[in-house]
């Protein structure tokens, strides 16, 4: 494992910890899109089916379990927790996420590495992850004001994607046959979605001001 991959996994982990901290400390999930969180839970559940059949490393297994567990816990909190669920901004979270599921599943049936049940679900999870942040970004845009922890959560998620791209560039030059086109192209699309958010994040950081997105 190279340093970029490790940095990517760590920023991914930090983003989830920031989100859990926000929900736990403030007993509130305001500004967080339940739809994005449900999509992530689906992404992890469909991608990590290999937990049952393949063993890669302790690190790999633990991280997968953490991602599945934390995403399910967040969805549970937002839907069922007596206090937390009251702060969910349902009227701002209106993205039609079922369309994303349908469209990415259709793409996975057309473009895959191998025509097997698991490989198609793997491709589906990669495509879905690429667009899963959209409901969250739309929600941020709608509310305009972004609270500190929510802003940091999205920032770390974006950083995770950026590090993964550096990781692929590194692997392309150091490994003989590193060709993972589906993951790389989807990863580029996914990172591009954050470009706008990053732009405003850095402006607010430079001016030492609260993060605000234009309406």
């Amino acid at each position: 494992m190279n340093i970029f991959r490790l940095a990517g996994d760590m920023t991914h982990l930090i983003s989830i910890l920031v989100l859990l901290l926000k929900i736990y400390a403030t007993k509130s999930c305001s500004g967080i899109s339940l739809k994005t969180q449900e999509l992530y839970a689906l992404v992890f559940l469909t991608r990590y089916l290999d937990l049952l059949t393949d063993f890669i490393s302790i690190y790999n297994t633990v991280m997968k379990l953490v991602f599945i567990g934390s995403s399910l816990a967040i969805v549970w909190c937002m839907r069922r927790h007596r206090v937390v669920r009251r702060s969910y901004d349902k009227e701002l979270d209106t993205f039609r996420h079922y369309f994303l599921i349908a469209a990415t599943f259709a793409l996975a049936v057309l473009v895959y590495e191998k025509f097997t049940f698991r490989e198609i679900l793997w491709a589906f999870s990669i495509y879905l992850e690429a667009v899963a942040i959209l409901p969250q970004l739309v929600m941020l845009q709608r509310s305009g004001n972004v609270d500190n922890l929510t802003g940091k959560y999205v920032f770390f998620l974006g950083a995770y994607r950026a590090f993964y791209i550096l990781n692929w560039i590194y692997r392309y030059f150091t490994e003989a046959r590193f060709t993972r086109w589906i993951a790389c192209v989807s990863g580029l699309v996914q990172t591009a979605l954050y470009a706008d958010f990053f732009y405003y994040y850095f402006i607010s950081w430079k001016n030492n001001a609260k993060l605000k997105l234009p309406a």
């Binding site: 991959r5 996994d9 991914h12 790999n60 793997w122 993964y164 990781n167 046959r177 993972r180 993951a183």
Partner: peptide, 10 residues
């Protein structure tokens, strides 16, 4: 035949 490398990323 061409073997796809293991999916070791998260």
């Amino acid at each position: 035949c061409l073997q796809t490398p293991p999916k070791d990323e998260l």
